[in-house]
């Protein structure tokens, strides 16, 4: 992958890089420690690997110019996830539907043993594709929940909602996810998990 400016139309941070106060090896370690999880989170939001890569790249670019204001090392991970999520939100307009989903009633779907088997049989790209079908307002907390990088408090901080809202959104997100897998199971045998897989979402 060639170095490139992100395609999302976001103004690159000005010069005066944080690298002046952070060594290149230290920055390399920071990237090494977090870029994988950030990419997985970005992929669940952006739905395609190119945009996900851009989001991750932009996040570290912002870190390089603004991250020095963060003195507490324990907050770095949370800061990176928060920045990535904000950049994602900046990249697209929120619709009225997003807020109306907050009042969506609980579904009737209950997890069954067959669903566990169904997910276990799927490949990673198909599981990701199912997750990406979940409405965004529920998908973001659900992705952070599964990635296990952040505590509930940190997830709430990233999404700027109370912890109780995170739990409520997790519940609704899982209901949607189960419905997606259940719908996929209604197709004939031989297509165990026919959710369209995301191009490039597979492990190389």
């Amino acid at each position: 992958m060639k170095p490139r400016r992100p395609r999302r139309g976001i103004t690159p941070p000005g010069r005066g890089s944080h690298l002046r106060t952070m060594s290149t090896p230290a920055f390399g370690q920071l990237v090494e420690d977090h870029y994988g999880s950030l990419f997985r989170f970005a992929l669940s939001l952006a739905r395609n690997p190119a945009d996900a890569g851009d989001l991750v790249q932009q996040t570290f670019l912002i870190w390089a110019t603004k991250g020095h204001s963060l003195n507490d090392g324990k907050r770095v991970k949370s800061w990176l996830f928060t920045t990535l999520y904000r950049e994602f939100l900046r990249g697209r307009r929120r619709t009225a539907r997003l807020t109306s989903l907050e009042t969506m009633p609980e579904g009737e779907n209950e997890p069954e043993a067959a669903e566990v088997d169904r997910v276990a049989r799927c490949d990673a790209a198909t599981a990701l594709a199912a997750l990406q079908e979940v409405d965004e307002v529920f998908r973001a907390p659900l992705s952070l929940f599964y990635l296990e990088d952040l505590s509930y408090q940190e997830i709430a901080a990233v999404l700027q909602v109370p912890v109780g809202t995170v739990m409520s959104r997790l519940s609704r997100g899982k209901t949607q996810l189960r419905a997606i897998f259940a719908a996929a199971a209604t197709v004939p045998a031989g297509a165990a998990c026919p959710i369209p897989a995301v191009p490039g979402g597979k492990e190389p």
């Binding site: 992958m1 920055f27 870029y35 890569g53 599981a127 599964y146 492990e203």
Partner: peptide, 22 residues
């Protein structure tokens, strides 16, 4: 399943190169 997803090859190098350019 989600843990199996890997970033595209070269993403890390691309990040480092871009920031180094700053």
């Amino acid at each position: 399943k989600l843990r199996e997803l890997a970033p595209p090859p070269g993403l890390k190098e691309s990040i480092l190169a871009q920031v180094r350019g700053l």
